[in-house]
Design a protein around this nucleic acid. Structure first.
Lengths: 318, 318
DNA sequence: TTGAAAGCGCTAACAT
DNA sequence: ATGTTAGCGCTTTCAA
């Protein structure tokens, strides 16, 4: 019984007597033998591992993506090597070095917060790179993004469908590309319905901004919107609170749609918020599938948008 | 210039002429040479990698721990291999297999949600295992936990310090050991101050439970507490909302202390919540230090508690 | 001070 | 059908 034979038996490769193989497998089992992946990788040249660089220190976006990613990669026998760069280019570069030294087969970058990034150079590493939920200016890498514009269109369409006509938009900070895309979707939906653009207010991603914005929007001489499309669920929640406290009923007087479908916010709000779900696990899963293909030699580049969905809750159900 | 020489030059090992070394280093730099960690590991028998198995699918607890962990491990040249088991023993077992095959030098398990777990067998793997922010019944592994009891004591002491005497406790579900520990701390603090135990109500980890509990606590014939110690920030936030809406002022009429110091909740609440911080990054960092020592051959077992801190905000500042 | 060679655990081509 | 061997990229004796 030679070492080579064992290899063949365990990998169902080469030609071997069924009886021998059974014997090997039994023995392996009995000895709790675990093939050393490192040696295998050294020999094969690839590690069965992809690196995931996250820039979202709370994991709010990264974890759901990771979940989808692992869901498709784990069954393929591939692991995910995760590290956190917290939007610090130096840390990111260090992580890239580490990952390359560990011979990862590909790198996935997620959740870069804003867009004013010098970006660590990931091109020319010789392995596939995918940006998920993160903008990228490198064009030899694949970028997977939620369809922010489409999500906004769905939100506004939903509000139109339930009969609202004076729809305002309480948005996030202007320096996020996503914010601009959503605003674009909002404006074009209104235009498509033959309506004049409503108010668009930009501020922070916080509840308190949602409350402030409502105070502005419903001040004297304003359009008195019967619906709000908010940049995220925190803003939406703040808006809902402010409206309730000024005696307006949500959704009867004002319907609200949020963005992110962040359970802990959307469900805890009063009333619970209709929200746009970016399908982060789906984005992660797609990243996994693309990565597997790219590792297989297929080349994929460019930017791909994945659809959002609308999750209806009480804030738009009369 | 032989391959062995290069190895010595790059690792500052063995004996080599300074001039030769400089030359090697220059060349390596020029060629962007990256030593193959896999080969190194195969040779040395350890991979410079620890596996992190998380059971907290939103990453709320895991990510801060991970941050602390990486903070100490990365400078030591070690990487973290992260995977998500979402409290599914089968997935956890599969991950352990994968990690072992990848020759990780240690395994860290985090954030197991409740305590009724059959637990995957991690003993006898032959590598160090640390449970962080997760209970464990295996006694040959180290367990790192926040001092829940101590945190509760701090919370209650703080309320006593600001002159409150009728302190109730709105707690989480009884099947969490942490909930029982916190209740213990609460009760003993009251006893220590010569006060009779206040009301303790158990419910879910949600804002809506916080509101419901307040409705119960301030019903007719109740003790009319002048302070609430809540099981987490969501409960505390719900309580604060309910109190405000029934016309009680926080903190003047009722002071509130939450638990977790989850920024997005504690800071967004009205008023912002004083809260107990479990110092998750610190827990992660400590796990990293212990792991490094254990990999070095030192044996550490048992359960270790790390102190919480109190973060004061408006909900207890008169 | 440097080079040569063995070996880490495995796979794959080749020889038996 | 099985055994033997070379070699993946590196470290580490041991010779030169």
């Amino acid at each position: 019984m030679s070492i080579g034979t064992v290899s063949k038996a365990l990998n169902k490769t080469g030609t071997i007597a069924p009886e021998t193989r059974a014997r090997v497998i039994a023995a392996a089992e009995h000895l709790q033998f675990r093939p050393n992946t490192l040696a295998k990788s050294l020999q094969s040249g690839h590690s069965g591992t992809v690196g995931l660089i996250s820039n979202d220190s709370f994991g709010r976006f990264t974890m759901p993506i990771m979940e989808g990613l692992e869901g498709v990669l784990a069954p393929l026998g591939m692991g995910v090597f995760m590290c956190n760069a917290t939007d610090d280019p130096a840390r990111e570069a260090a992580h890239v070095d580490q990952l390359m030294a560990k011979q990862v087969d590909g790198i996935i970058v997620t959740a870069r917060r804003s867009d004013r990034r010098p970006a660590v150079h990931l091109s020319g590493l010789g392995i596939p790179v995918i940006h998920v939920f993160a903008r990228s200016d490198e064009d030899d890498s694949l970028t997977l993004l939620p369809d922010d514009r489409g999500g906004a269109v769905m939100a506004v369409q939903h509000l139109l469908d339930i009969g609202r006509r004076r729809i305002a938009h309480i948005a996030g900070p202007l320096n996020f590309e996503a914010v601009q895309l959503r605003r674009g979707g909002y404006l074009s939906s209104l235009a498509g319905a033959g309506l004049a653009p409503g108010d668009v207010l930009h501020g922070k991603w916080t509840e308190s901004w949602g409350r402030d914005a409502v105070a502005q929007l419903y001040g004297p001489g304003r359009a008195n919107p019967d619906a709000l499309f908010c940049g995220n669920d925190q803003i939406a929640r703040g808006a809902a609170d402010a409206l309730r406290e000024m005696g307006r009923h949500v959704p009867c007087d004002v319907a609200i749609v949020g963005f992110d479908n962040w359970g802990v916010m959307a469900e805890a709000a009063r009333p619970p918020l209709t929200s746009i779900d970016m399908n982060l696990p789906g984005l992660g899963a797609e990243a996994g599938r693309c990565m597997a293909r790219m590792i297989g030699g297929q080349s994929e580049t460019g930017q791909r948008l994945l659809p959002c969905t609308l999750v209806p809750r009480a804030s738009t159900l009369g």
